[in-house]
Amino acid sequence: MTPFDYTRAEGSAAAVKQVSGSAKATFLGGGTCLIDLMKLHVENHDLLVDITPLPLDRIEATAGGGVRIGANVRNSELAHDATIYKNYPALSEALLSGASPQLRNMATVGGNLMQRTRCPYFRNGFSPCNKREPKSGCAAKDGYNRSHAVLGVSEHCIATHPSDMCVALIAFDAVVKTHGPKGERAIPITDFHLVPGDTPDRETVLEHGELITAVELPAAPWAMRSHYLKVRDRASYEFALASAAVALEVVDGVIKTARVALGGVATKPWRAADAEKSLVGQKPGAPAFAATAEMATKGVAPRQFNGFKVALVRRVIVRALETVAAMK
C-alpha cells in the first residue's frame, strides 16, 4: 500500500468534509474491498477516514412499515437480523452466500454497495483496463472472460458487479440514503449503480466525499416470499457464476407482483424489469417462468468464455421462481 494517514470520523458532517476536501481521501468501512485493492495498488489514497465509529449501525423500522439499515451494519448482523430474516429472506440468503463468516463480520452495508469488480485485468494493476485507467482499453473483452458479464456491457468494459447483497436490495426497491457535500439525498438503488458505457471508471452516482448513511427497504409484504439462489463452482466462499433474487406475490392463483434481479452476469446489480412485468397476470408455473427467463436475458452479449452464463442464469431464474412459488 502507498502511505496514507488514518483518522476516525467524528460525525458524518466532519467525515464528509474531510473526504470531499481532498481528492485522494476516501471512507474506510469494513475494509474488505478497499484494503484488498490498496494492497494491489489498484486504489491509492492519502487519507482514510474510518467511518465505523459513526452511529450508523442500527436496523430499525420505518414509519412506512419498511426497514432502515444503517450503513455501518455488518453483513453478518444484517443477515441474522430477525426482521430481515422474516420479511426479506432473499436479502438474508444473499448476504450469507457471500464471502466468509470472517469477511461478513467485517463488511458493512455501505461498503458492499461500493464493492468493486473481480475482473482479473482490473485487479492485476497493469493490463489495459478502462475502469482502472480510463482510455487504456479492455483486456477482458478478448482475454479470459469466464467470470465476466453478459448483460449491461459496453465495448469499454465487461466487468461483473460482484455483490450478492445488492442483487437482493435491487429486487426490494431499496433506497440509498447519503450525506454529501451538497447535503442529503435519497437515491433509488436502480439509479445508484451505473452501467459502464464509455466511462467504466464511474461506477455509482455518488460524488466524491458523499457518504452512504443508510439503506431503506420499503414495506413489501410480498418480499416474505422471496429467495436468493446462487450458483458457483465451490460450495461456499466464492463469487457467483450466476445468481437471482426473486419474489412472487400470488393472488387467487395469479401473479400480482414479481421481482427478478440478477447477479454474477451483469455489470451492475441487474433488475429484469420487463421480465417481471411479463409475469404479472400469469399463472405461476414452468411455461411462465421459462418465458420470463428468456426475456430476462434479452440482449445478452456473451464473449468467448462466458457464453454458458446465458443458459445458466436462465435456469437459475426458473429454479428460484419455482422455489418461491412452492413457498407456503
Binding site: L28, T32, D36, D50, T52, N105, M106
Partner: peptide, 13 residues
C-alpha cells in the same frame, strides 16, 4: 470476540 481477517484489518483501526 468476533472473528475477522487480520490481513484486511488496519492495526490502527
Amino acid at each position: 470476540g468476533r472473528r475477522v481477517n487480520s490481513c484486511l484489518t488496519l492495526a490502527v483501526a
